[in-house]
Write a protein that binds this DNA or RNA. Sequence first.
DNA 1: ACCTGAACACCGTTCAAGT
DNA 2: ACCTGAACACCGTTCAAGT
Lengths: 267, 267
Amino acid sequence: MYGVHRGTFYGRWTPYTCQGNDGPTAAVRSAREETGDIATQIEAAAQPRLPLSKERILGTAVALADEGGIDAVSMRKIAQALGVVPMALYKHVRNKDELLDGMVDAIVGEIDPPAVGIDWKTTIRQRILSARQVLLRHPWASRVIEARTRARPDPTPAVMDYMESMVGILRAGGFSIDLTHHALHAMGSRLLGFSQELFEDSPSADPMPDAPPPQEMAARYPNITELVTAITHEQGSVVGPGCDDQFEFEFALDLLLDGLERLRTST
Amino acid sequence: MYGVHRGTFYGRWTPYTCQGNDGPTAAVRSAREETGDIATQIEAAAQPRLPLSKERILGTAVALADEGGIDAVSMRKIAQALGVVPMALYKHVRNKDELLDGMVDAIVGEIDPPAVGIDWKTTIRQRILSARQVLLRHPWASRVIEARTRARPDPTPAVMDYMESMVGILRAGGFSIDLTHHALHAMGSRLLGFSQELFEDSPSADPMPDAPPPQEMAARYPNITELVTAITHEQGSVVGPGCDDQFEFEFALDLLLDGLERLRTST
DNA sequence: ACCTGAACACCGTTCAAGT
DNA sequence: ACCTGAACACCGTTCAAGT
């Protein structure tokens, strides 16, 4: 089960994990201000009164990623934003992998705690949708989580807490151990609020200069063209917004939850 | 719908896409031999009789990724394996992004074509399981597909062919356009054979040196511990193989397919 | 006209020199 | 003992020099 049964899930426990669930952490908030504009950066460089800490480093890293994507996060750039020499970071973070781990944990810590006294399905549903909102605020995070997962099997501490809570909800809701196990696998990455779409739905500004003409597309891809045409017309505008991602996410989520509920009551 | 309704899906059409479905492509096979051992590499460097081509470059890149992961793929290393100066690659590939696109298309081209004359569910099921086998042979591919998806919305040509075929199967199976649309979203990345597991199940050789003692784990994560214990005992050995990934994948896939079948017949 | 070596602007991390 | 600048081994890509 997720590789945790071989003792490989004993993640290192680090203090920065214990953070509230009231939105962005203090470290992230202060770092946003720090990297918010160039004047502040220069000031920070001139007067590094605050002592460096793992929390400040992680906050700056998250802010950089939120603003410029994960490629904007490098040891050198974090150091620059903090007005510090790159090597200074290595006193608080072993290497870049540990930095990414810390960033993931800070994000996962933002997910709302589970509701209490409600049926399992509503509780799980709300929590997953909360996780989705958090990851929509930090679009880089799901890719970091996924890359980290492949590199090292032991989940980070905050992810462990999250999973523990999810398993508890299912067990309390009457799921057998086996069905709980299968349920976790079935929901997969949706547990953390992201479903990997094969194609991005973002509004691409560039209209694809070397695109084949529509007739050729319709001939080559008749079924896709039909689908695209129907959805475009349904929304009443040719350049309207794309799919309702929220609806599609909930559609798939409910398909799974309803199926699990059926299996739960059938045994 | 996957962003394709805004005309952004007119992927560039390149000749290397048109490949059979009989396993690894010729380019990949020959490149495997080329990079197979050092002697061959040196020989290739000494006698570059074969002219450089996009196919040879892609084949070498795929072989390098299969052997050493995606980090082993760099313009410089590909050139070295081909006995060529790095800049020579840029005559056949615009940049590294285009190279990755080509690698993805070569892999997707390996997926079995759909069976004919069978019900929609079996056909879709078989095809997705075939895609899964392909991606298990090339563990780097799903991550590249996902990263590419976020960077640019238009799918690569081979992916477009695959999607067109999938949509056709659903439509022929009696799905309405709307339900076809939702079905594609619901299956998400499973369509291409990978479900993003939150935790990797690979046998990690290192036993986590700084792991907390089991009692502490059991106290902190009682539900997870119960799950892990049950699954370990179920398999009868403490260090036995992990979860049955194939089973879990099919469990989730069937949950979705059964749910879709119910929706299909209910309208 | 073509090919390619050097160079540019990065990166994470090591290591020894300076305080 | 601590901090840090230079250096190392990479990377993708530009560009001008050489043929």
